[in-house]
């Protein structure tokens, strides 16, 4: 399995609200990220726009439906469709989430939590091997935000992710907001979480907003909050060159607001000792 070379840059998601701006080449980013499933179609305007954008910018493919933690294995039709898009786009990398979305009968279209057990780790690693072999490339997997943990858990999330990366050779997409949300919801230390991860495997960082409450919810509908920016600064102290993006999927603001948030990430990195001169 080949390696994924580090890519340093700042990007945004290619969302319908901003298609015209991206098509006109008016968006000053280093890469774009697409939701893979939105483009796993036979034809039409979305694919045309993606190919147009791809001609000028690197594209990261980010999926939500692989269901890498599914006890029923991976959906063959899904993998075939994803593979076709990979061949067509030649992305920077392909990512998905550490979660499950479906059983043999139903699909929740939501990122459901894994039990962190040794048997679950075996199952996830088998599925990752299958996916990476099918796509002929290593993938990135994103740490989830979660709203419950299982009584059966045998290890922490960061221990699970570390073992997963070591055994499969996969890389990590680190969602800083997800760490913040889950740390609050489950009462662990975000700093301990970061210290427990193999940072050399991180190739991309997501920054997003959430909804506050007794249980914080990862809604991607608000600006990145101060606490997440602080955690981002600590994260960047620990990572090498990575692709950083602002993730907004709901209540999508005008492009200048997202670009301002991306500038804020650049400013944090300018102040980050590990990144000085990078």
């Amino acid at each position: 399995m080949s390696a994924i070379e580090p890519f340093s840059g700042y990007g945004l998601g290619l969302r319908r609200d901003h298609y015209r701006d991206f098509e006109a080449g008016r968006v000053p980013v280093d890469f774009v990220e697409v939701i893979s499933e939105n483009f796993m179609v036979d034809g039409g305007n979305p694919l045309r726009i993606l190919e147009h954008v791809r001609a000028d910018l690197p594209v990261a493919m980010h999926g939500v439906s692989m269901s890498i933690g599914s006890a029923h294995g991976l959906d063959r039709d899904y993998l075939d469709a994803l593979n076709r898009l990979v061949r067509r786009i030649e992305p920077l990398w392909v990512s998905d989430h550490l979660c499950w979305t479906r059983t043999s009968a139903h699909n929740s279209h939501d990122l459901l939590p894994m039990p962190y057990t040794h048997q679950a780790l075996d199952l996830v690693c088998d599925n990752i091997d299958h996916a990476q072999n099918t796509l002929s490339r290593p993938m990135l997997f994103e740490n989830p935000s979660s709203y419950l943990t299982f009584p059966e858990d045998e290890m922490t999330e960061w221990e699970f992710i570390s073992a997963m990366a070591m055994r499969t050779g996969c890389y990590l997409l680190l969602d800083v907001n997800n760490i913040y949300v889950s740390a609050h919801n489950h009462g662990f230390s975000a700093e301990t979480y970061l210290a427990g991860l193999p940072m050399d495997r991180v190739r991309q960082i997501h920054l997003a907003g959430h909804t506050d409450g007794e249980i914080k919810i990862d809604t991607h509908d608000q600006p990145v909050c101060d606490e997440v920016w602080q955690l981002y600064a600590k994260t960047r102290d620990m990572t090498g060159p990575v692709a950083v993006m602002i993730e907004r999927d709901d209540a999508i603001p005008p492009l200048p607001e997202l670009l301002a948030e991306l500038d804020a990430a650049r400013e944090f990195d300018g102040a980050c000792p590990a990144m000085a001169g990078a």
Binding site: S70, A71, H72, W100, R102, T103, A105, H106, S108, L112, P115, T117, Q119, A120, L123, F150, E152
Partner: peptide, 9 residues
Amino acid sequence: IADLQQEFM
């Protein structure tokens, strides 16, 4: 795990 996911779903 399959049972757990079935029940969760």
